[in-house]
Computed example of a mutant assay.
Amino acid sequence: MTHELTVLAVDFGAWTPDDWSALAGGASAVLTLFTVVIAIAAAAYAKQQVDLARQLREEQAQPFVVVDFADNPVMRKGIDFVVENMGQTLAKNVRITVDPPFSSTLDSAGFPLKDAPLMTQGIPSLPPGKKITALFDTAPQRYAAGLPMKYTATVRFEDSHGNPQEPLTYILDLTVRHSLLYPTEYGLSDAAEALRDISKTFKEAHGDLKNEVNRRRQAESADGDSGPAE
């Protein structure tokens, strides 16, 4: 079997000026097309970066409403319900729904949180950095009462232009606070109680001292009256 190898040879020396002109035109067209492709790719990349930057600015400028439980700064072992706008702009028409509805050992005091305007009417406007705090419960009493320890809170609100924002859902779980070791912290209520105890102690001591002084005066007066007559 005979294998034939065919080699394509180009005799550039035999090319006419028209051939060279045609080659130059083709090469120029390819180069132009390549340049256009690069320009389109660069424009698409630039647009993507601009869109991402705009999206980031818009997200940073949006309100961001957070709800959570927090330690009460005054009442030891007290639990607060906190609503805060951690965004950069105003939040409007903030509405909070909780499943199941809030229940607390403090409800018997006549001010259940689930019936408060905060929960039933919402918040007309919540400026950036604004925080609203409501006393929710006290840990020892709640654990003993067997009340729900986990709630699902959904927050709906609008931006400063009245545009509805994506609803935010939070899992409020009190079990993470249960059985944790806390250092003993004394707040203003403890200080007030201590001052009342000190005041009571001083009053009792003053009363005892006054009674003792009166007793001694009476004893001295009685001794003077019983002395020898001249």
Rank of each mutant, 00 (worst) to 15 (best):
I123A: 11
I123K: 02
I123H: 01
P124F: 09
L126C: 11
P127D: 07
P127R: 11
P127Q: 06
P128K: 06
K131I: 06
K131A: 04
I132G: 11
I132Q: 08
I132V: 08
I132P: 07
T133M: 01
T133E: 15
L135V: 12
F136T: 00
F136H: 12
F136A: 05
D137F: 06
T138C: 06
A139V: 03
A139G: 04
P140V: 03
P140I: 03
P140M: 08
Q141M: 07
Q141S: 10
Q141I: 09
R142V: 03
R142P: 12
Y143L: 14
A144M: 05
A145P: 05
A145E: 03
G146R: 02
L147Q: 15
M149P: 01
K150Q: 14
Y151I: 11
Y151D: 13
Y151A: 01
T152E: 15
T152P: 04
A153P: 06
T154E: 03
V155G: 01
F157G: 07
E158P: 14
E158L: 03
E158D: 15
D159Y: 08
D159N: 15
D159M: 11
S160V: 12
S160L: 14
H161W: 07
H161V: 13
H161E: 14
G162A: 10
G162D: 14
P164H: 09
P164R: 05
E166V: 15
P167V: 15
T169E: 10
Y170A: 10
Y170D: 13
I171M: 11
I171D: 15
L172F: 04
L172Y: 06
L172N: 08
D173Y: 05
D173P: 08
L174A: 11
L174I: 03
T175P: 08
T175G: 00
V176G: 01
V176C: 02
R177M: 02
H178M: 11
S179I: 00
S179K: 05
S179F: 01
L180P: 09
Y182C: 04
P183V: 00
T184M: 15
T184A: 03
E185K: 10
